[in-house]
Design a protein around this nucleic acid. Sequence first.
DNA 1: GTCTATATGGGGATAGAC
DNA 2: GTCTATCCCCATATAGAC
Lengths: 217, 217
Amino acid sequence: MSLTRDRILDAAERLFAEEGFDATSIRSITESAGANLASVNYYFQSKDALIQAVFSRRLGPLNQRRLAMLAAVEESSGDGPPQVEGVLRALFEPPFRMSSTLHGKGRSFACLLGRVFAEPGDLFARIVEEQFGEIRQRFVAALRRALPELPDVELMWRVHFLIGTMAHTLTAIDHVPAISGGLCDPRDVDGMVERMIGFAAAGLRAPLPALSKGGLE
Amino acid sequence: MSLTRDRILDAAERLFAEEGFDATSIRSITESAGANLASVNYYFQSKDALIQAVFSRRLGPLNQRRLAMLAAVEESSGDGPPQVEGVLRALFEPPFRMSSTLHGKGRSFACLLGRVFAEPGDLFARIVEEQFGEIRQRFVAALRRALPELPDVELMWRVHFLIGTMAHTLTAIDHVPAISGGLCDPRDVDGMVERMIGFAAAGLRAPLPALSKGGLE
DNA sequence: GTCTATATGGGGATAGAC
DNA sequence: GTCTATCCCCATATAGAC
């Protein structure tokens, strides 16, 4: 329950998002947090552990919310297959919602959350595995039930593709207005999420590729 | 036409892909290239300029190929709208083809090419703008002709989404087999590219979102 | 073009006083 | 819990001999 600890996490989150993990020094974090240089090592033991803490602080609640939304979708469909759009909403909405409800902080974290998939190094591979591995499995299983005709190899590729869409949109969220010439407004969270859902759902339901090896038709 | 220069570029490409830009030192690059520590500064002036050179060396030819394929697709459709799948193939195929035809080197570069969209800092924003800005405009224009019913704001969002799919697939190409439990094989470049095309084309043709503000229907 | 040696600066981590 | 001072290491970049 230390205030200093939280200020360090907030400052690290923001600076990591703005400058990257390597380019952000413990010195700049503690300075920005109004804390002492030694405090990061006091509270977190190492910079790597601080990075892990930045992710787990937000991803614990966020993934709980994903699973709760997924459970609600599966409940509402009874014994039948769940609705694809509902499953995708449970996956996409929580991070984007967070990015708009946490004041500035959510924006920073959203950026990090997208970037973690592209970061090199064992540390980030471990973070992805620990924080996203089970979520991925659960959502793959739900989509398999939602699309029973889709061969598993196609499902796996398409889930990979839609995770890319999600990750890139999270990471580049601040660049979207400039890239689109002002047309796209990421502050409209509902519109952005619904568009991602529509895009990914259509991709999941696309016709099978002609040369599909696992195809059954 | 210096051999040393090329060996430095090759070593940098591989190490940047494996360990990241910041974590790769000039020392490790020159060591791996069998060159002297000072040679990077002799040939490239700075590490930042070396990074830019790593990208421009491959992206020059790669983007030429994209534009040539795009021109061929537009030519083949005469005065009518170009085919969506053909446009997407012109965008997607060159980087993935390169990743399989350049021996090990293409794999490394493909990883970098996907990661550049997520890297923080002005250097990478500049690289994306310089190396991808015009390509993006040309492909947006082609897709606008291919999908004349689609409101521009929806087109922009969907292009953003499919760039995310491309970037993530490039970056995580080596993780795909493990993630998919061995089902997905990225060595099947044709299959991978056709699946991306099918996914993205379906996403582009998705029904308009119910709350689309720019909708015309 | 290639090398050695070095200038210059910043990094993460910790010891030990308060 | 907080702070100062410091250890030790490694980075980029360059000067100047060969």
